[in-house]
């Protein structure tokens, strides 16, 4: 029930945001254009209704094309890259965390400091360095590791996924390190150690279960940054994804469609995760 309420509140928030530029244009000339704003919201909602009839002007072929089902191709490509990168980031950061937790205290502190400063690298720098490196490698050896831009209906996967995954990996790694260290101070870890379990076993089985929940709840902000990064990535690699589509069509309706296309999967992912973890926590309390 709460879930449905949250869903509708979030949808309302996005719809309210979709027509904001009109309000700001009015604000620039010194007037409040509430009427225009709400009219625009109403108009976008009305246009949204018969979903099959929405048409967009396609710059590449210079004519109007219906939005559905063409848009799914864009959306699926974007989501595939986003979720592949997310999976990669989660897997790599958790493995690295577990390895680091087995190291000594001092080594851990150094790793944490290094991560903290690595986080300040802008995503643009990573993308550009990756593209330069691929070209350099190609010039030196004649082997093209990956294409650095998509042309037409090309689909490139692994280089963009790698570029997109690097920053979230660092961020999640640091987050997981903090959570694991917090968890290490709990009583049950002392108990397990006193019972003679090895460090590896304690980290992998006992701490992992509890820390992952906490990392999950804190990962929302990482996802948020990833969305921004995805946007930049699609522009730099010229990937035919939903973000590139949106930057060609900057108006309220397109904004709504694009935001909803990744809002829905992400919202369900997070709601499901929340429901699952909360249920598990409750189950534990009952036992």
């Amino acid at each position: 029930m709460k879930l449905i309420l949250n869903f509708f509140i979030a949808v309302a928030g996005i719809i309210l945001a979709s027509s904001l530029p009109l309000l700001i244009t009015g604000w620039l000339v010194g007037e409040w254009r509430w009427r225009v704003y709400f009219d625009s919201i109403g108009a976008s909602l009305q246009e949204l209704w018969p979903l099959g009839e929405i048409a967009f002007f396609n710059n590449r072929i210079q004519q109007f094309v219906p939005l559905f089902p063409n848009i799914f191709e864009y959306i699926i490509y974007s989501l595939v890259i986003l979720f592949l990168a997310l999976l990669l980031a989660v897997a790599v950061s958790l493995i690295l965390t577990i390895v680091t937790m087995l190291l000594s205290d001092r080594a851990r502190e150094r790793v944490k400091m290094a991560l903290y400063f690595l986080e300040s690298i802008p995503d643009l720098l990573i993308i550009m360095l990756a593209q330069l490196a691929v070209v350099m490698f190609f010039k030196q050896t004649g082997v093209l590791i990956s294409k650095i831009a998509a042309i037409g209906d090309d689909r490139i996967y692994w280089l963009p996924v790698l570029c997109l995954a690097i920053l979230p990996t660092i961020e999640l790694y640091r987050l997981a390190m903090l959570t694991f260290q917090e968890e290490e101070r709990q009583m049950y870890v002392d108990l397990a150690r006193a019972l003679g379990f090895s460090k590896v076993y304690i980290v992998l089985v006992h701490m992992f279960r509890n820390a992952v929940i906490s990392v999950f709840f804190q990962s929302k902000k990482t996802m948020w940054f990833m969305l921004s990064n995805l946007f930049v990535l699609e522009l730099m690699f010229n990937l035919p994804g939903i973000m590139l589509f949106l930057s060609d069509n900057m108006y309220p309706l397109a904004f709504l469609v694009a935001v909803f296309s990744f809002f829905l999967p992400m919202f369900f992912l997070y709601s499901f995760g929340e429901w699952y973890f909360v249920r598990r926590l409750r189950g534990k309390e009952a036992v």
Binding site: L5, N6, I9, A10, V11, A12, G13, I14, A17, K220, K221, M223, W224, F225, L227, S228, L230, F231, V232, M243, L246, A258, V259, F262, F263, M266, F267
Partner: peptide
Amino acid sequence: SLADSMHYIPLTL
């Protein structure tokens, strides 16, 4: 939860 919906809109966009 209203502010939370902002987490689904990429900031740059």
